[in-house]
């Protein structure tokens, strides 16, 4: 492998991606889920993806993770084509999907075990449990956890591998407003410390504006990119500031919710 700086190696490029799925009732036909998506994420950039339900956000994240292959188009991380999943691209799923047979600690360790580096990195496990505030639940099994706790474990499980690219599918969706804001700051802190490239799917427009460098807005059927908006506000951002609210109005308008929001 060619030695490159982290910055070059961890940018993501998505070029003209199409993805279709068979229609359940008519197996011969296929429905386009993604109809020609192109965008790129610079290394260490934090990009949010927003759009109506069913527009293909999760599908796109699975493609970048390498879990599915596109019908056509190119997916690149740095200069390398994505051909399959890798620990360098972490994915936090929309459902926590914790392994029910492992404790909280076991789940968080899973990535280290899978890569065979548990022995060297065991000390990090405690660090990540602290990060998501679950040290007291280290030995609890997932079915004892609330939805928000489970999602925090899933986050820690993905973070422990220090992926170059982190894909987050509504990771904070199940959290209460207070924990959610705290976790947003934690994710931002991680992002700043590690210079991770992040792609965040969210339904929460405030979250998207608060966190990201850029917001990509998708439209439905088939999924396409409608617009990209750069959020050029200094961090930490003021959630009630004028420019924050201006971005909010602009995005809502694009999502065709502007009328409702004004009412």
């Amino acid at each position: 492998m060619v030695m490159t700086t982290v910055t070059e190696a961890s940018g993501v490029r998505v070029r003209d991606i199409c993805k279709s799925f068979p229609v359940p009732d008519a197996p011969a036909t296929r429905r386009m889920a993604l109809g020609g998506i192109s965008f790129s994420i610079a290394a260490a950039e934090l990009v949010s993806l927003v759009g109506p339900s069913g527009c293909g956000k999760s599908t796109l994240l699975r493609l970048v993770a390498g879990l599915d292959l596109p019908d056509s188009g190119d997916l690149l991380v740095g200069k390398e084509k994505i051909v399959g999943p890798s620990a360098e691209r972490g994915l936090v799923f929309q459902d926590p999907n914790l392994f029910p047979w492992l404790t909280v600690r076991g789940n968080i360790e899973a990535g280290l075990v899978a890569r065979g580096v548990l022995r060297e990195k065991r000390n990090e496990v405690g660090e990540f449990m602290r990060l998501v505030g679950l040290e007291a639940f280290a030995n609890a099994y997932p079915h004892h956890l609330s939805g928000g706790m489970a999602q925090r474990v899933a986050l820690a499980r993905a973070l422990i591998n220090h992926p170059k690219v982190l894909l987050l599918d509504e990771p904070l969706g199940a959290l209460d407003a207070f924990t959610r804001m705290r976790m947003q700051d934690e994710v931002l802190r991680l992002w700043e410390n590690r210079r991770t490239t992040m792609l965040l799917v969210t339904h929460d427009i405030d979250e998207a504006i608060y966190m990201s460098d850029r917001i990509v807005i998708m439209t439905q059927a088939p999924g396409r990119i409608d617009r990209e908006i750069d959020i050029d506000l200094p961090r930490p951002r003021d959630r009630t500031g004028d420019s924050f609210l201006r971005f909010r109005g602009e995005i809502l308008e694009h999502l065709h919710f502007a009328g409702k929001a004004a009412a």
Binding site: R62, G66, L67, L91, A110, A114, R115, A158
Partner: peptide
């Protein structure tokens, strides 16, 4: 399938 997907994104190989 989602358990297998999670494990793959964590760097799991076939034996895992």
């Amino acid at each position: 399938a989602s358990y297998l997907d999670v494990a793959r994104t964590l760097g799991a190989r076939r034996l895992y």
